[in-house]
Write a protein that binds this DNA or RNA. Structure first.
Lengths: 333, 333
DNA sequence: TTTAGCACTCTCCGGGCGAGAGTGCTAACG
DNA sequence: CGTTAGCACTCTCGCCCGGAGAGTGCTAAA
């Protein structure tokens, strides 16, 4: 009964009346009986009426009950699953692009908004450093971290440094730095390298300055995809409702906070359960992806409160497991 | 006169009446005189009335005349200019991030939407290739192009390749490939390397496969920033008008086409002058940025037709010159 | 040529009204 | 005692109407 109401509301976005239920879902009873049951459900707080003479709309509590019944077995239809697998196979390039791909897939498949947190490396360890000469007097400093992410910065070279000389400096840098946590750069590493020629001091200063800043900047990046879909939802036709929500989504810190809250596995936050008033008409489905069995980051789908939970949860669940798998394989864990 | 009308309309977004002009801009004449003049302007097609008893609104032709008078001397107030210079100085990292910064700056400063085309390298030449071991059986292939952009991909290693061995392979690859245009990889380069051990064939296949795909993927990337500002404009309160526009903006190919059309210097396209019907309520200000004096890419600001052309043109002009300068310096040209 | 005055037109806003949808209650039915 | 048909009631939504307000164009006077 409650299920019928919720599913009809999810499909139509209109308050559902007793007649509708009686007609569409032939439960073998008349609309009058359904009216009685609905009255009960309302008393229990599972549904509510926008006004006296409209149909009923599920309440947060109603959605909650509904969601809790289906949280255990989210399974995706095989055609979609196959398609997703193919996408992942085609685009194996690096962590960054995989995370982006995941966001895009989710948004496209569900028509909701996806929010993905890039994998956090516990401590960002320097794997490899290189200096590539570019043109007159500049070089590109390339950093590869143990987690497989890539950063770069342009640095100025002292006058008259040749390509071979630069290669030597790069090798020296690489030797000194690889294996070292970027956070602890300032202290330990500097001294070891200072031994090198004085002439390179400015170059070193630039390089280390960059390397020190990397951990803060790169950490916990948030990828949003499909925000435009919000505008397509009938409950968000009112711009005054949408804009605060969009503004909220742009604040990375809040998004990070939103995703770092609950435990593991699929979790759903519904309407008024959110901290932020702007999200009271939304629901958020969250999952954790893992690398080598250890939690690495989080993924979420944001949709209207009457989102298609079955589809959203199934898709999110599947995509999460795919991402975990591909990432683990890639990073050799 | 026309100027007064346009500037008032830009400021208020409401049709402007003769009274308003007489009051705000004391031109020493009464509203009746202004009515006569307005009637003339309307006959000439510079302004139009939405309906009989509303004020006047500038037409495309009116804006065109207005814009053409001020296209020559866009100058930014010194405080802003200084602020922009400071931003550029603080974030000198690499091409990619500079382009993004430019987009962000423009969007924030003007509250319009910025569209930036990443610099096109005529032919993407390989500057440096490296293989960095990551974990069990994988390595990261890093590519630096002559233009200073950075690409990477994960590749699988044959069983039992040690770090030193990998370094040798990387060096071989680097020697063979650096200086070679990526587009012509397939033919020439492959043969030279095939001489190496058969054992590495799969690795080579993966690497070259990636390197070949790079030119297409990386080319002409479009960066959008500040699309949300569109929703803030009073003329775009109607979602039915906004959504087609947003949909259009998401199509990279169309954006590229939009920016590749006109000549050099600042150029403005107003309302109905656009090819695409979705943009008939918008104006686009476009500029070309240069690296070492040669056109490298394009930047644009998209706003409502009644956008603040003075500010937009001045800001765009200044930011463009800054970007050109910084990029030229960085790439040593 | 400019200006004051005035009639005219058109939009916008609020109230009133009827149609439609859905409910809750009551009474009948198996 | 649960179910159902019937009916009065309520509330929203869309529509029309009329008055207020804003702005125009025209005319006649300065």
């Amino acid at each position: 009964m409650l299920q019928a109401i919720i599913e009809d509301y999810i499909a139509t976005a209109e308050p559902v009346g007793s007649r509708t239920i009686a007609r569409k879902y032939n439960l073998g009873v008349s609309s009058a009986t359904i009216r009685n049951e609905m009255s009960d459900l309302e008393e229990l707080g599972y549904i509510e009426q926008p006004h006296t003479s409209a149909g009923r709309v599920p309440s947060d509590k109603g959605y909650r009950l509904y969601v809790d019944t289906l949280i255990d077995h989210p399974s995706l239809d095989e055609a979609r699953a196959a398609w997703i697998r193919r996408e992942y196979r085609a685009r194996v390039r690096h962590t960054h692009s995989l995370v982006q791909l995941t966001g895009r897939l989710l948004a496209e498949l569900t028509s909701y908004t996806s929010i993905v947190l890039a994998p956090q490396e516990q401590a960002r360890v320097c794997r490899h450093v290189d200096l590539v000469p570019l043109g007159s007097g500049t070089a590109m400093l390339v950093l590869v971290t143990a987690g497989g992410s890539l950063e770069s910065s342009l640095v100025e070279l002292p006058a008259g440094v040749g390509d071979e000389e630069l290669r030597d400096i790069a090798q020296l840098l690489d030797q000194e730095l690889s294996g070292i946590a970027l956070g602890q750069l300032a202290r330990g590493a500097l001294r070891g390298i200072e031994l090198g020629l004085n002439r390179y001091q400015e170059l070193l200063r630039q390089s280390l300055g960059f390397l020190e800043r990397v951990p803060e900047e790169g950490a916990d990046k948030v990828f949003l995809c499909g925000t435009k879909h919000i505008l397509g939802q009938p409950e968000f036709q009112d711009l005054h409702k949408v804009r605060p929500l969009l503004a909220l989504l742009e604040q990375e810190a809040i998004m990070q906070d939103l995703l770092t809250s609950p435990g593991t596995g699929l979790s759903v936050t519904i309407g008024g359960e959110h901290k932020h008033a702007e999200m009271q008409d939304c629901s958020l489905v969250t999952a954790t992806y893992r690398v080598g069995g250890r939690p690495a980051g989080r993924i979420a789908l944001l949709g209207p409160r009457r989102m298609n939970y079955v589809e959203a949860m199934a898709t999110l669940n599947f995509v999460t497991s795919q991402l975990s798998e591909v990432l683990s394989k890639l990073l050799g864990k």
